[in-house]
């Protein structure tokens, strides 16, 4: 079993679908945080075969759970206080995602208008389909430029 140091206060995201931890890292903008962040990729998992884990030593309230749910609704969120697990949270697909992703439709007004909020709504919860609030274009995962 792989051992990564415990965190004292913060949040542990477990059961992340293997390969999605960096997406969550990107959309939560963890690169901008000054705290400890541990990224564990392809950890062995009995249930999933492989999984990713993220440990973030920060105030749990500062993390946008909707962003995590949007990327992977099956993630388990563990809240850690004083080195102990105090709460396990289940998350579900958010009805709306604000200023996380941008619309890729070149005909969408958000491609030219400055200062607009980028909003997507959950159009189909069975198939995890989000659509742009402005133009109804379906969101498809894009390559992230690191």
């Amino acid at each position: 079993m792989l051992n990564v140091g415990k965190i004292e206060n913060g949040i542990v995201l477990d059961h992340i679908q293997a390969g999605k931890s960096m997406l969550i890292y990107h959309y939560l903008e963890l690169n901008k945080l000054d705290c400890t962040v541990a990224i564990i990729k392809n950890a062995r998992s009995n249930a999933m075969g492989k999984k990713d884990i993220l440990k973030i030593e920060t105030d749990a309230h500062s993390i946008d759970l909707d962003v995590i749910a949007f990327i992977d609704p099956d993630v388990t969120v563990n809240i850690i206080k004083g080195g102990e697990l105090v709460e396990k949270k289940r998350i579900s697909l958010p009805k709306e995602v604000k200023n996380v992703i941008k619309c890729a439709n070149p005909r969408c007004i958000t491609s030219i208008e400055q200062g607009v909020q980028h909003m997507f709504y959950l159009a189909d919860s069975r198939r995890n389909i989000y659509r742009c609030r402005y133009c109804d274009e379906k969101y498809t995962e894009q390559e992230i430029e690191w």
Partner: peptide
């Protein structure tokens, strides 16, 4: 407006 969703921006 030629862009999709322009009226939504106007409404806001």
């Amino acid at each position: 407006h030629p862009k999709e969703g322009a009226a939504m921006v106007a409404k806001q």
